[in-house]
């Protein structure tokens, strides 16, 4: 199974995401922001970082990168897409996911090992977890506050589209402790925490993040 990892200028966790794909047993394929071609991959990860320097607004410029054109079409057609941190911001800017990410309420960058609760195990990226499972993976962001209007938030809750929620202290002021959401179809997931940093016991606080990558690979095998 081939999973594409997009590199924008300013992407930082692209190699980590590729490593996580390999550790999970998949083949990682580099995709370049300027190349409007997905090269036939079976799923895509938009990695963390500061694409285009986060100028204007996080993810606002990346959204217009040539690679996003086929990606948005494919995502609407059901291609599994995971946006991590900056990738989540790009997905919101691209309107593949509702809401937006704003500056942390405490106005500082935060890096910590974050406890999370997996709320939705029906998405392409979380099917390997148990509902309600507590996991710990790194969180690191300056603009990770998830916001949306009340109607959108109510809708997300009603449709079970909150994928993961912060457990314990809310690290960035996200509404309703939301750490990740999905689209109606469950193939596109945006996450503020970083599962790709928790796939090896040597370098991660846990290996709890591996499930996001094994979930999508198993789903692809089954289909």
């Amino acid at each position: 199974m081939r999973i594409g990892v997009v590199t924008f200028p300013g992407s930082l966790d692209d190699r980590d995401a590729a490593r996580a794909v390999r550790v999970a047993g998949g083949e990682a394929v580099s995709l370049w922001h300027g190349d409007a071609d997905l090269h036939g991959v079976d799923a895509v990860v938009l990695p963390g970082g500061f694409s285009y320097g986060d100028y204007l607004r996080c993810g606002a410029i990346a959204r217009f990168a040539p690679v996003m054109e086929p990606l948005v079409d494919a995502a609407r057609g059901g291609l599994p897409v995971l946006g991590i941190c900056n990738g989540f911001q790009v997905l919101c800017e691209s309107h593949l996911l509702p809401g937006a990410l704003i500056r942390n309420d405490h106005r500082k960058f935060v890096c910590r090992d974050q406890p999370l609760r997996v709320e939705n195990t029906a998405t392409a990226w979380t099917s390997g977890y148990a509902a309600g499972q507590q996991i710990v993976i790194p969180l690191k962001n300056g603009e990770g506050g998830y916001v949306a209007d009340d109607r959108t938030l109510d809708e997300l809750e009603a449709e079970g589209r909150v994928v993961v929620r912060y457990a314990g202290d809310n690290p960035n002021g996200s509404y309703r402790d939301i750490a990740g959401v999905t689209n109606a179809r469950g193939n596109v997931v945006g996450l503020m925490p970083h599962p790709e940093h928790a796939v090896e016991s040597l370098t991660g606080p846990t290996t709890d993040g591996l499930g996001f990558f094994t979930s999508v690979l198993e789903g692809l095998v089954r289909s």
Partner: peptide, 23 residues
């Protein structure tokens, strides 16, 4: 906590450990 210690995925030990260790 305002510094990213995880990026690049090779950090084996970081503060407050005695030394930073990289793979």
């Amino acid at each position: 906590d305002q510094y990213d210690r995880y990026v690049l995925g090779n950090t084996v030990l970081a503060q407050p450990e005695d030394a930073g260790v990289l793979r």
